[in-house]
Design a protein around this nucleic acid. Structure first.
Length: 132
DNA sequence: TAGGCCATCTGGTCCT
DNA sequence: AGGACCAGATGGCCTA
C-alpha cells in the first residue's frame, strides 16, 4: 500500500513536471461576430445613466422583440445574484484547484489553467487505470 | 508599460 | 414575471 502510494506520488510528480499548460491545444476558436447587443459605450447617445434602468428595444434581425422593463431595485438584485453566482463558481474552481496536482511553491493556478490541468490530469489518470 | 487575470455590471436569452 | 445563465465591456491589480 505504501509502496503503491509512493509509486503514485512519483508518477504524479512526473506528470506535473511534464504538463505544459502553455501548449494546450485550442479547443474552439469562436468566430467574432460584431453584432453584440451589449457593446454599448459612452459614445452611444442612448447610453446615459438615466437610461440605464430602462430596457432597450431590441430590433436586430432574428432577435426577439420582447422587451423587459427592469427597475433600479431589480437591477441591483440581479447584480447581487450574479455576484453570488460568480462566488459559487469561484468556490468550485478553488475545490478543483485542490484536486489537481501542483507544486506548493507554484503560483496559484488561474481558472483557465485549472480547467486545462484538470482535463490533462483526468486523462492521465484514466490512462494509468487502463494500463495497470 | 503591456498583457493577463479577475471582479463587477449589464442586457439578452432560456427556463420554470 | 422573474431567476439562472451567459457573454461582452470595463476598470483595477499584478507581474515580467
Amino acid at each position: 500500500m505504501q509502496m503503491q502510494s509512493h509509486l503514485l506520488d512519483s508518477t504524479l510528480i512526473h506528470f506535473v513536471n511534464n504538463v505544459n499548460l502553455m501548449h494546450f491545444p485550442p479547443v474552439c476558436a469562436t468566430e467574432q461576430v460584431d453584432d453584440s447587443p451589449s457593446s454599448h459605450n459612452e459614445s452611444d447617445s442612448s447610453w446615459s445613466p438615466e437610461h440605464r434602468t430602462s430596457a432597450h428595444l431590441v430590433t436586430g434581425p432574428g432577435r426577439s422583440r420582447r422587451r423587459r422593463i427592469i427597475t433600479v431595485v431589480q437591477r441591483q438584485a440581479a447584480n447581487v445574484r450574479e455576484r453570488k453566482r460568480m462566488f459559487s463558481l469561484n468556490e468550485a474552481f478553488d475545490a478543483l484547484r485542490k484536486k489537481v496536482p501542483t507544486f506548493a511553491y507554484e503560483k496559484r493556478l488561474s481558472r483557465i489553467e485549472t480547467l486545462r490541468l484538470a482535463i490533462v490530469y483526468i486523462s492521465f489518470m484514466k490512462d494509468l487505470l487502463e494500463n495497470t
